[in-house]
Write a protein that binds this DNA or RNA. Sequence first.
DNA 1: ATCAAAACCCGCCAAT
DNA 2: TGATTGGCGGGTTTTG
Length: 354
Amino acid sequence: MAGSCGVRLVPASDANVADRYDRVMSSPHRVACVAFDGVVAFELGIVADLFGPPRPEAAVDWWYAFALCAVAPGPVRVAGGFDVIAAHGLEAVERADTVVVCGFAVEHVEPPPALVAAIVAAHTRGTRIVSICTGAFLLAAAGLLDGREATTHWRWADRLQARFPRVRVNPSVLYVDGGDVLTAAGKAAGIDLCLHIIRSDHGADVANRVARGMVVSAHRDGGQAQFIELPVAPTPLDDPIGRAMDFARGRLAQRVSVRDLARHAHLSPRQFERRFQSATGLAPGRWLTRTRIESSLALLESDARPVEDVAAAVGLSPAGFRRHFRAHLEISPSAYRRQFRGTAHFTPARNAST
DNA sequence: ATCAAAACCCGCCAAT
DNA sequence: TGATTGGCGGGTTTTG
């Protein structure tokens, strides 16, 4: 336990704070992240970084204004044992268009009732409410998740369900978009949800550009099941595109075609094309080859299998594999293997192009 | 390295 | 009337 490690993050200057405050007043969309003692800094950071700074690479008319707020302006002791300064009190929640609640140690931390009340009031006014990780416990306690599907960190899913039986907890997705209330699974899934929000507000292209800037994958899928130690009941994604993606991942070696995917999704090829494009910002064929290349990386790193076998395992001919690999990574498969042998898994953030 | 065939992508349009 | 859908044409990319 790091009771206090002496680190202290403070606003650069009063002028800076005033400037942000003005942006909060003038931006068409204000995101308020609520903080209280014991909140998790990592997730605060995600939200602050995605919605806070201007993002020229997004190339959009407007960007979010971000405000960190607490019951009252001032320092908040985060879970890591250092302080962050909330520049705003609850009035920022009142003015927000989106309110984000980050995770906290649910067994030791009691969120301030005034804060919870402010969030409920905001929801009643139609404000979009978002939780990351165990932040869902706050929303559930406030009754905002009653009768709804929601998710949280897989390690806490059982407890969320037990404590709030009226919530339909889905432990195997990265996030749930319930329209006015959105919940993300643990930790980094917050990035996925924030990108999803940007995707719904600004479109897939913008989300892809932001994702690239953050060096993360723009559209992770497959849920958080892959991170769970104990097997959970597989809950198939109910949207046809997500299903098709799962389907494709499961049989890359069989050389699935876009036509196959469309058929599997029960959509006409043209319509599948369109839906896929708008969901991921990528044409299905391009996504397919990108997925093939990405899944080949792990094989190249961990296996000594010949490149030809790796190619076959991801459904490409040797020549095609080498060609695509080069096009994506600007390096040959064998060179990649030499370079990354024995190192951590590496996933390139090449999404929008190709 | 080259090339024909196949697959893919996407604007457009008419029909729901 | 506006949104969604499925088919077509044909330029582009991929395959073998």
